[in-house]
């Protein structure tokens, strides 16, 4: 009797996850219907976001999301891979331990703090070097890169560490150098895991809000250069959700949220269910 009740409680809680996820999709979809019906495909292809005219095209926000995350990936991937190589192959045990723990702790620092630091310390530097406002895609890309770096490095290192020692030793036994072993054995062996880790970090970067909201600018315009302020989906949501004053405006914001959710869901699913699962099966 109690057994049954307990079982049902646990099962309901587990099913609740599925319910919530489905519910999120349904709610976001329903609320964005008005925008979709009004604008159709224009919603994602038009670069006009004019609340005063009740015209909403999300092109600039979508583009801003894509460019800022691409920029962040371009900056973070080489460094994260370098850090991962350092942590798994170069550093001695003590440094490995210290460095490894600091990286994991830094990955836990709230993103709002990265954003605040970016605004007060990094934006002025960009302003000094390149002129302009300092706020914009470049600042957003850099702050985002720094923010995802610890996570990215930690998961990439974990992927590299799955390479069996005996495989590495076999290459050393043929006269390979450390770098030979890294590029010919570890990277090919852990390829799926490494790519999966990088894409997973990308998935997080797409949805990251606070680190970029401080430094992006929230200007609904396709930027002329990466130094220009622009916006992205999370930045728009963060800045405008509480200001929306018409139902179409709200619906458009929900449309943005749905777009963001789908983008990150797809990216994360590809990382987890294609690459990381393949990596797990291989090892």
């Amino acid at each position: 009797m109690i057994d049954k009740i307990f079982f049902n409680f646990t099962r309901l809680s587990a099913l609740l996850i599925l319910v919530i996820v489905a519910w999120i999709f349904v709610v976001l979809f329903n609320h964005s219907l008005e925008a979709m019906n009004t604008f159709g495909l224009d919603f994602i292809t038009r670069d006009e976001w004019a609340p005063n005219l009740d015209k909403f095209g999300a092109y600039a926000a979508i583009l801003g999301s894509i460019i800022s995350t691409t920029l962040a990936m371009l900056l973070a991937v080489p460094i994260a891979v370098g850090v991962a190589i350092f942590l798994s192959e170069i550093a001695h045990d003590k440094i490995k331990g210290f460095f490894g723990v600091s990286v994991e702790l830094l990955a836990a620092i709230p993103s709002v703090i990265y954003g605040m630091w970016g605004l007060f310390y990094f934006v002025p530097i960009i302003r000094d070097i390149f002129g302009g406002l300092g706020i914009g895609l470049l600042a957003a890309g850099i702050v985002l890169a720094i923010m995802i770096l610890p996570f990215m490095a930690a998961v990439t290192r974990d992927a590299m560490n799955t390479t069996p020692d005996i495989l590495k030793e076999s290459a050393y036994a043929l006269g390979g150098t450390q770098w030979d072993v890294i590029k010919d054995i570890i990277i090919p062996y852990a390829k799926a895991g490494i790519i999966g880790s990088l894409i997973l970090a990308l998935g997080r970067a797409i949805g990251e809000t606070m680190a970029v909201t401080f430094v992006m600018g929230n200007v609904h315009h396709v930027p002329g250069s990466i130094l220009d302020p622009t916006t992205s989906i999370p930045v728009t949501l963060a800045n405008e959700f509480t200001e929306a004053d018409s139902s179409l405006y709200f619906s458009s914001l929900f449309g943005l949220a749905l777009t963001l959710l789908i983008m990150s869901f797809v990216v994360i699913a590809v990382a987890k269910f294609y690459f990381l699962r393949k990596a797990r099966r291989a090892s």
């Binding site: 976001l28 949501l237 949220a257």
Partner: peptide, 19 residues
Amino acid sequence: IRDISDIMMSAPSIVIGAF
């Protein structure tokens, strides 16, 4: 459930706010 929950763990938190 594990898979969906894993994705949820990395999903954008601002979207949860909108929901």
